[in-house]
Design a protein around this nucleic acid. Structure first.
Length: 472
RNA sequence: UCCCCUGUAGCUCAAUUGGUAGAGCGAGCGGCUGUUAACCGCUAGGUUGCUGGUUCGAGUCCAGCCGGGGGAGCCA
């Protein structure tokens, strides 16, 4: 038995380690089959290795030609043949088959959920187990992988360590949004305390636990020993948010740097974003070309402009001034502009798209609209927080310098009505060799949305979890 | 969670003032072709999301429930 060597569709189409005339074996799934009554059949076969399928030409002389003519979209095959220059248009090389093994047919082609035709994204979400066989979703899968690898590579090349912060966390210490409870208690027969409350001391961990909403507090611990660290993992929010930008389970990246202030943080954010998008354009030109052609005609231009731009830095107070000047000049916003408020999406878009025309880092927000751990500025009314705003999408990164002074941190915890004992180990980091440090977070799926022009994060994660939906 | 829109063949959508359901794509069969969004012809395929109500009669009107989308809030 000497089958030709197994190669990927990508190797064939790009003649990587494969030359015209070579005998090869490819394995994959049928996208379409076209028969010629001249006695041959054209099979478009994809295997996920690249955007385009390869054309396999099956001559009528093959022993199982009748079986080959039963192949429909979605069927799986192993093809043995030779790489040849194509006689048709649309591809430079193709595979002249010497044998086509039919591995798995499609039960009922009439009801195959993803035939070779156009589908809405809403429909394909209901076929999430099969949607990755389409052009769009296989391209998304490759973009997701490419960006994930680019993120790890950027941090690794810059001396960062990847830290696996816990998925299950003790309660009360994170305070960002509704959390999913983790419990092994019998819901139909909950243990009670004398006071009649649920007795979590009998639960698996002996206390209330939840799925993480952020790895930041834990990663700060590693930052104050390893200097440069980051998290990249799943994150969970039990908020009842039904929008194109929210998931109950999503992936988040959170770098943290020691001996650093907010300006260092902004510099890191800028270098980071430019690096990963540059990698994406270099490594996946076919997939990105598809997004440009079929999903968002501006997406490559937008990313290239983003990479070329220097990010504007602007204080929150200055941003408010500019917005007020715009209002005075006749521009109307749905929400009023006033110092102390959080910037609405319309304000962010005006700043980055209309006013500056480039990415903007807004810094030093009012303390009352930001989290307890953000570092108090000398003015006593703002904290060292930043948001990176990008044209066309708005906020893409949120970050801050962390409060490293124990006394100031304690005052903030108390001021915001939090329980100081819950933060004992976080406070220890300020007691034992504290240093100025900073970090930021970005949602992976939102980053992908920016890169691809896809409108809904539910289409950017393989199996989306949203309120009332966890089908797959 | 709030506001708006929406649910009709496998998919995308039609269906006049309420009168008993149609097209394109896909699928099957046939024709044609080194084809590639192929093309031409024929055929099959629907308890109109669910429950109830109004009516001689409901895809169409009303109520509730369930699902989907957009926007808002929250945020990443």
């Amino acid at each position: 038995m000497s089958s030709p060597p197994i190669v990927s569709v990508k190797q064939v189409l790009r003649t990587e380690g494969v030359a015209v005339g070579d005998a090869v074996t490819i394995r994959g799934w049928i996208r379409t089959r076209r028969d010629s009554k001249a006695g041959l059949s054209f099979l478009q076969v994809h295997d996920g290795s690249c955007f385009d399928p390869v054309q396999v030409v099956a001559p009528g002389e093959l022993d199982n030609y009748e079986d080959i003519q039963q192949l429909t979209t979605g069927a799986s095959v192993i093809c043995h043949g030779h790489v040849v220059e194509s006689r048709g248009k649309g591809q430079s090389v193709e595979i002249k088959a010497d044998a086509v093994e039919v591995i798995g047919l499609v039960d009922d082609p009439d009801t195959y959920p993803v035939p070779a035709k156009r589908h809405t994204f809403e429909y394909l979400r209901e076929q999430a187990h099969l949607r990755v066989r389409t052009n769009t979703f296989s391209a998304i899968a490759r973009v997701r992988h490419c960006l994930a690898q680019a993120i790890h590579r950027f941090f690794h090349d810059n001396g960062f360590y990847w830290v696996h912060t816990p998925i299950v966390t003790g309660s009360d210490c994170e305070g960002a949004g509704e959390m999913f409870r983790v419990s092994t208690l019998d819901l139909t027969n909950l243990p009670r305390t004398d006071a009649g409350e649920v007795d979590f001391s009998q639960d698996f961990f002996g206390k209330e636990t939840n799925l993480t909403v952020s790895g930041q507090l834990n990663v700060e611990s590693y930052c104050l020993a390893l200097s440069k660290v980051y998290t990249f993992g799943p994150t969970f929010r039990a908020e009842n948010s039904n929008t194109s930008r929210h998931l109950a389970e999503f992936w988040m990246i959170e770098p943290e740097i020691a001996f650093a202030d907010l300006a260092d943080d902004a510099d890191l954010a800028e270098a980071f974003l430019k690096s990963i998008f540059k990698t994406l354009l270099e490594e996946l030109p076919d997939d990105m070309g598809f997004f440009q052609q079929r999903i968002d005609e501006t997406c490559i231009d937008r990313i290239e402009a983003f990479i070329e731009s220097s990010f504007e830095r602007m204080a929150y107070t200055e941003a408010i001034d500019r917005l007020e000047q715009a209002v005075a000049g006749g521009h109307t916003f749905e929400y009023p502009v006033q110092w102390g408020m959080d910037l609405q999406s319309e304000h962010e878009r005006w700043l980055t798209e209309t006013h500056v025309g480039r990415p903007v880092v807004v810094m030093d927000y009012p303390k009352d609209i930001k989290a307890f751990y953000m570092r108090m500025n000398d003015d006593g009314r703002t904290v060292a927080a930043m948001d990176v705003l990008a044209p066309g999408i708005g906020e893409i990164i949120g970050g801050s310098q962390r409060e490293e002074r124990l006394g100031v941190l304690d005052a903030r915890i108390e001021e915001m009505g939090l329980e100081i004992d819950d933060y004992w180990w976080y406070r220890d980091l300020r007691r034992y060799g504290t240093v100025p440090h900073a970090g930021f977070g970005l949602g992976f799926e939102r980053t992908m949305a920016f890169a691809t022009g896809m409108a809904n994060v539910r289409d950017l994660i393989p199996f989306p979890r949203t309120p009332r939906t966890a089908t797959f």
